[in-house]
Design a binder for these strands. Sequence first.
DNA 1: CGGCGTTTTGAGAGAGCTCAACATCGGTGG
DNA 2: CCACCGATGTTGAGCTCTCTCAAAACGCCG
Lengths: 201, 201
Amino acid sequence: MPDQSWLTPAIRRAAIARTLTTGEPLFRLGDKSAGLCEIVSGRVRLARVDRTGHETVLHVAGPGETIAEASLFSPHYQCDAIASTHAVVRIYPKAAILAAFEADRKAAQAFTAMLAHQVMDLRTRVERRNIRSARERVRHYFALNTGADGRTVGLHGTLKDLANELGLTHEALYRTLAVLERSGEIRKEEGHIVLLRAPKI
Amino acid sequence: MPDQSWLTPAIRRAAIARTLTTGEPLFRLGDKSAGLCEIVSGRVRLARVDRTGHETVLHVAGPGETIAEASLFSPHYQCDAIASTHAVVRIYPKAAILAAFEADRKAAQAFTAMLAHQVMDLRTRVERRNIRSARERVRHYFALNTGADGRTVGLHGTLKDLANELGLTHEALYRTLAVLERSGEIRKEEGHIVLLRAPKI
DNA sequence: CGGCGTTTTGAGAGAGCTCAACATCGGTGG
DNA sequence: CCACCGATGTTGAGCTCTCTCAAAACGCCG
């Protein structure tokens, strides 16, 4: 889904595939930054370890996500990246990316635009998490994820995935959807949900 | 706090100050994008209105934040921006920014780097919100916001602001801090908090 | 058919929210 | 100088909603 027009053929050609076993580090805090990384499969967590040895997770990245974008402009990685599952990643070397951006203004601009969109998307997620009520949180998601008709919400992945995205347990999500469906606000269909009418607040 | 080295003198000179009264729109979905915007004081909310007339808030921006970064690369704004309070903003015209980035590669790179850092910061906030327990959420924040000594957490703004940032009510935060202090894990001092020892899980 | 993951419903407990009261502090104006 | 006001900080008590744990139905695939 994210715009990948910044990923020029030259960068793609320079990509390095790497396989990680569970627990294997991709890079460590302070390592010389090799470039940014796209998760192909599995999960990779970004974390920091404080002086007491406790690990604090910054983010868990899944398939399709890119991590360590900031390392393009920094000589070292700013946190640890460790495979949480068996994982396959593609590393796009810093030199290749910076050279491509130097040569192709449009690509560099597309990269910046992609980051700007991600910022907006993430701000929206944070805003959604500010909503306490499960029902309102689900409505917030639906309202912002309708297709062109403004009434259909596509479901990519399972409902468990959606529950995770919304910060709810899957049980809570099932119950909420059941309530909304019983009240006639939505209808569940194969692979998508149809918004039937405005909520009665 | 955010790196503003992308804000070159030329861009600064081109800035347009604007004052908004509560409820006044800064821009609307579909408007021709004038440029990006920095909030000087007050609050501006970004929102979309669906066909039923219901407004869905994407983000509430406060002093120091910039909004509409994505509009630099799009001919139109992608949502509404409306003052939630009396507000003062600075608009940096798109043309001035793009010209500055064209002339000064370093500035363009600094802008991209700033966005990359914001992405990481926002991902971390989302990750924090995945933690249900108030105590663990507070610990997560502390662990990632210590100063150079690794034991001091500066408090910018009020505790209510912090509670909001953490997605807790201020009462819940007060209680949690009180518990942590009683257990000897932290000490509250003027304008900052000192981490005394590792949590006993 | 059997096993695994998703979906679904039930019952109970606990954590945080809500409402309420009060203390504290800084500013403002009479 | 003091009374007043608003915002922050603090603690209490009760309640609601979601989480947790459990169990079962369902669908898919080998």
